[in-house]
Amino acid sequence: MTRHLKAAAPQLAALFLVLLANWIVFPEFFHIRVQDGRLYGSLVDVFNRGAPVALLAIGMTLVIATRGIDLSVGAVMAIAGATAATLVNDGHGAMTAIAAALAVGLLCGLWNGILVALLDIQPIIATLILMVAGRGIAQLITEGQIVTFVDPALIFMGSGAIAGIPMPVILAFLALCVTLFLYRRTALGLLTEAIGINRRASAYAGVNARAVLLVAYAWCGLTASLAGIIAAADIKGADANNAGLWLELDAILAVVIGGTSLFGGRFRLVLSFVGALIIQAMNTGILLSGFKPEFNLIVKAFVILVLLLMQSGASGALLDRLALIRSRPRLAPEGKEVS
C-alpha cells in the first residue's frame, strides 16, 4: 500500500497544489453546502465536471496500456448522448435508452478493436476514422439539432444525486471500481501490460493478444458512452456538434499526467482518474479566478508543462543531483597510489 502511495506522490502533490492555488484565488473554494439534496460547492464542481473526462480516461488508460490510442471517444460520447436522447423522445423508457446508448458505445469500441486487433491498422489511424465519422453519425441521429428531453430518469443520470453526491461522480467512481475489479482482480491487467510492452513475446507465451486488445477498445467505447450519457443528461439535451468535442485530448492528457506511458505497458487507473481531476481542478480554478478568457489556454498549457516536468525523468535526475550536492559522499582521497 505504501508502495502505491509513493508511486502516486507526484500526482497527489499536483492535485493538492492546484487545489491550493484555487483556494488562494478563491477563498471559498472548499465551502460546501447542501442545495436541493445535493452537495454544492466549487470542490463538488471539480468532481462533477471532471467525471466525463475521468470516465474517458479510464478507458483510454486501458487502450494506451496496450500501446494504442483511441481518438474516437469524444465522437462516441456524442453518439451515445444522441442515441439516448432520441430514444426517450420516441417514447422509450430511460432504462432502454441508457442500455441502448451503452450498447452503441460498446459497438463503437468493438469496431475500433476489430480494426486494430484483427485488421492490424495502426490505432491512431483506426480510431481517427470513427473520430471523424462518429460526429457525423451523431448529427444524423439528432438531425443536426440539439435534442432536448424531459425524461426525469435520464436527467437524473446527469443532475441527480444519491446521498448528496452527484450522479456523475457516483457513476465515474463506480466505473473506476468495476474497471479495477475487471482488470486487477483478474489476470486481464497483467495480460494487457504484457502485450503493451512486448506483444510478440506475449503471444509466444500464449497470451491471446487480439482478445485483450478487443476488450480494451470495447471497454473504452463503453466508458465513453457512459460519459456521453452523463454529458447529455447534464444539459438535458444531446448536442451532437459539441458533446465531447476535443475531450479525447483531455483524456489522453489525464492518462499521461497519471503517469501511464504512451508507449504502453504499466498502467495506473486510479492515477489517470486523479489526472482527470487535476485537469478539471485547473479549469474550475481558471473560471473562478476571473482571468480574461483569452488567457485560459495559456494558463492551462503552462500548468500542464509544469506538471509533466515534475514527473519527467529529467527533472527527477535534477532533483537527485541537487540532493547529491547536499549530501555528497566523500570520495577516496586522490593520489592514493598502489604499486
Binding site: T186, A187, L190, L191, E193, A194, I197, A201, Y204, G206
Partner: peptide, 29 residues
Amino acid sequence: KTEGIVGELSVRENIILALQARRGWIKPI
C-alpha cells in the same frame, strides 16, 4: 529481448505469464 522477455514486467510476472495465459484471464493465479 524481442521474443522472450516482457522487459518492464517483474521477474515474477514473467515467470507466471505462460501459465496465466493458459489458465485464461478469468482465473488469475
